[in-house]
Design a binder for these strands. Structure first.
Length: 707
RNA sequence: GAACCCGUGGCUCAGUGGUAGAGCGCUCCGUUCACAUCGGAGAGGUCGUAGGUUCGAAUCCUACCGGGUUCACCA
């Protein structure tokens, strides 16, 4: 054995030893309870970042621990096509070459995106292996695999059949530059100052920041409790410039303290106004189109961007002496989370899921603790979201994704939904000319089905069981029957509302059972000053670079060391280096132990008894910490035991009576390696392989957890 | 406006009712014999502030101050 542990020489070899041993693939044993984690599929838009490395560390620790406890353990890997994200990243690369998505037809663009994603996917797989992820590659899945898509379609069809799907004219957050709408979760609000114009509508004065939308006004609304306007309700006001008259109505959504207390109702361009419009059965007029340009206005404004139109309208209003006052207002406006551009609230035909019934069932499951949250505060957040979710817009106007299986009849304009294949004829008028919706699903609609979709497809999917079909009409599989519901869902808190609660809703809907029993949430990795990591700040930490420099073991240990997993953690290179030193420490402890001939059983003295007692205490504490998901606590216990008790104290004491203590040294080393293995799998396995005739299992990965 | 989180040694964080802990950093000492990616010794904290509960509070309660995250509204 070398004087120093060299991770560069060993990690790849150790990983292929594990792969060959078959330890990653669980044996289905109906007599045993399985342990299952479905890996949150990383986006195939970019290589892994340091946040991924943290979840790999956390999940691999749990997986290796449970595997060593003899549970059939499945960690199912995969990748997400990540619709908007990937298309956005890819289009930026196109732009560098002077191209855009409009230079290609749908099929070509899709193919390019496919190749791009496959490249990233394979990079990520290599990286996961470098980090020591002991996942079952024979069950590796991608969100666009045809068998996954089939299940997603089946769920879509069922939602439709159950009346939970509707095509609504709804106001959506539309980003003109991305060319798609976003969910409420994807809009960032930024504060800024804008002029607030007070416009003369003759009977009332209206305050607005968007005078260019006056052409889409359909009414004036006041608060019913507002005494100032009591007598005006039911009367009319007159729209400046065009002179159309507008009814004055009352609605409690109007804030009497804002502006003049009277609101111009513009259902086509504002969410609140849209709601008022629906309530009062007002028409919806759009004057800004999907490119952000003016339509349906007096001729002179048509085709202008809304910003230019605003300047022009203001000028014209001034000339007509219809502007009574201009103030500055500090407010926030919606921007696109992708390109930071302004969001246009537009009325657009979209597919929506009625979320209320799904959320209600999910909320009940959380309340009844069918899904448990390891940290209380995340349960609170999940419940809050489940109570407040609005209907879910699942249409996306992008190419990269699962195309919606909906066809529109050219004759009667009705929609026909299938679970995949093109329909021969319209379901309502039997006309045979149908056009497919060009939209794709919101990525979260497919990834929200990930836990059951992965288990219903892929490996063992041919082996149908006798079980009846699921509510979605898909037959169950051996994998599904055995591994579902999964044990733990482990992911970062920033996608708790996007992903976790949607998986609970869809899982319950499609299978009748929760998708996982335990939710474990981890915090973000920050830089050594505790600052959020971002490309623009230039403080990005590349996990692979770190792993190559100090070893994957050191990086993994550093990523759970010191901070509770649910909290954000500051990662410093010094910390990683410290853990590299620890890997070297256990290496040298082993070198010392192996320098003695295999020991014979001798009577233990008081030092031997002391270390054996300490070992037992450590085993008990580490096991308890792991069961409670307190990984940092477990890591610190092992570290302290190996370094400060085993090495610093006990080994020093054995030097004068080497032969007598050899047996105890070997015992303590073997148990230490087992305890440390989930955390630092490479170095511990390498040591095990160095002298495995002394140990009770051919591979450490398959050894049994100490008791 | 609301919710949640955080404030513990120089730094990053554990501890959450019973005499203050870790890693890194710092100071001093030590190089044959597992490891200098090491060993030994040590300095350093009235646990944000003020009240309260308690035999006892870093830990529970209240208020305040400071930092952060998220959500809602903004015509």
């Amino acid at each position: 054995m070398d004087k120093r542990y060299d991770h560069r020489k060993n990690e790849a070899k150790v990983y292929s030893l594990w792969e060959k041993s078959g330890a990653f693939t669980p044996k289905i044993d109906k007599g045993k309870k399985p342990f299952t984690i479905i890996m949150p599929p990383p986006n195939a838009s970019d290589p892994l970042h340091i946040g991924h490395a943290r979840f790999v560390a956390i999940q691999d620790i749990l997986v290796r621990y449970h595997r060593m406890r003899g549970e059939p353990t499945l960690w199912l890997p995969g990748a997400d096509h990540a619709g908007i994200e990937t298309q956005y990243v890819f289009e930026k690369k196109l732009a560098k070459k002077g191209k855009s998505r409009f230079d290609y037809d749908r099929e070509t663009l899709y193919k390019m995106l496919w190749n791009y994603s496959m490249e990233n996917k394979s990079t990520m797989e290599t990286q996961l292996k470098q980090l020591g992820a002991s996942c079952d590659w024979s069950r590796n899945k991608f969100t666009l695999d045809s068998d996954i898509v089939k299940i997603v379609y089946a769920v879509f069809k069922k939602l439709y059949d159950d009346g939970l799907l509707y095509r609504g004219e709804r106001i959506v957050n539309y980003c003109p530059s991305c060319g798609t709408s976003f969910s409420q979760l994807e809009v960032n609000y930024v504060e800024r100052d804008d002029p607030l114009y007070f416009l003369d509508y003759e009977t009332v004065t209206i305050a607005t920041t968007r005078p260019e939308t006056i052409f889409a006004d359909v009414a004036i609304a006041v608060n019913p409790k507002d005494k100032r306007y009591k007598d005006l309700i039911g009367k009319t006001a007159k729209l400046p410039i065009v002179g159309r008259s507008l009814p004055i109505i009352a609605d409690s959504l109007v804030d009497p303290d804002f502006g003049t207390g009277a609101l111009k109702v513009t259902p086509g361009h504002d969410a609140t106004d849209f709601e008022i419009g629906q309530k009062h059965k007002l028409p919806t007029v759009s004057v800004v189109d999907k490119e952000g340009k003016m339509v349906n206005t007096p001729k002179k404004y048509i085709g202008l961007t809304s910003e230019k139109a605003r300047r022009q309208v203001v000028e014209d209003l001034k000339r007509a002496k219809k502007i009574k006052e201009v103030k500055t207002i500090h407010h926030s406006v919606g921007t696109c989370y992708r390109d930071k551009g302004l969001i246009e609230p537009l009325v657009y035909k979209q597919w929506f899921i009625k979320v209320k019934p799904l959320a209600k069932t999910a909320l009940k499951a959380v309340r009844e603790r069918k899904v448990k949250f390891a940290a209380k505060r995340f349960e609170k957040i999940a419940k809050h979201w489940l109570r407040n979710l609005k209907d879910w817009n699942i249409s996306r106007q992008i190419v990269w994704g699962i195309r919606i299986p909906a066809w529109r009849c050219e004759h009667c304009l009705e929609w026909t939904i299938t679970n995949g294949p093109s329909p021969k004829k319209c379901k309502s008028c039997e006309h045979q000319k149908l056009t497919r919706d060009t939209d794709t699903f919101d990525t979260w609609f497919s990834s929200g089905q990930w836990p059951y979709a992965t288990l219903l497809s892929g490996k063992n999917s041919k082996l149908k069981t006798q079980n009846s079909k699921l509510p979605i009409g898909v037959s169950t599989t051996l994998d599904f029957d055995y591994f579902y519901p999964t044990s733990v869902m482990e992911t970062a808190y920033d996608i708790l509302p996007f992903w976790v609660i949607r998986m609970i809703m869809l899982g319950l809907y499609a299978t009748g059972e929760v998708p996982f029993r335990q939710v474990l949430i981890h915090g973000l990795v920050r830089d050594n000053k505790g600052e959020k990591i971002s490309k623009s700040k230039g403080n990005v930490i590349d996990p692979i670079e770190m792993a190559e420099k100090y070893g994957a073991d050191a990086l993994r240990m550093a990523l759970i060391w010191g901070a509770l997993i649910e909290n954000d953690m500051a990662l410093s290179e010094e910390n990683v280096r410290g853990q590299r030193n620890f890997a070297n420490k256990i290496w040298n402890v082993a070198r010392f132990v192996f320098s003695g001939l295999p020991g014979k059983r001798r009577k233990r003295n008081k030092d031997d008894n002391w270390i054996v007692k300490e070992l037992k205490t450590t085993i008990r504490k580490v096991t308890r910490s792991l069961n409670g998901y307190r990984l940092n606590e477990a890591a610190e216990e092992i570290y302290d035991f190996i370094w400060h008790k085993f090495a610093d104290v006990y080994i020093e004491k054995t030097k004068s009576r080497r032969e007598d203590s050899q047996k105890t040294l070997e015992l303590v080393l073997a148990q230490s390696l087992k305890l440390l293995h989930p955390f630092m799998p490479f170095v511990t396995e390498k040591i095990w392989q160095e002298s495995k005739d002394r140990f009770d299992s051919p591979n450490l990965i398959s050894a049994n957890w100490p008791k």
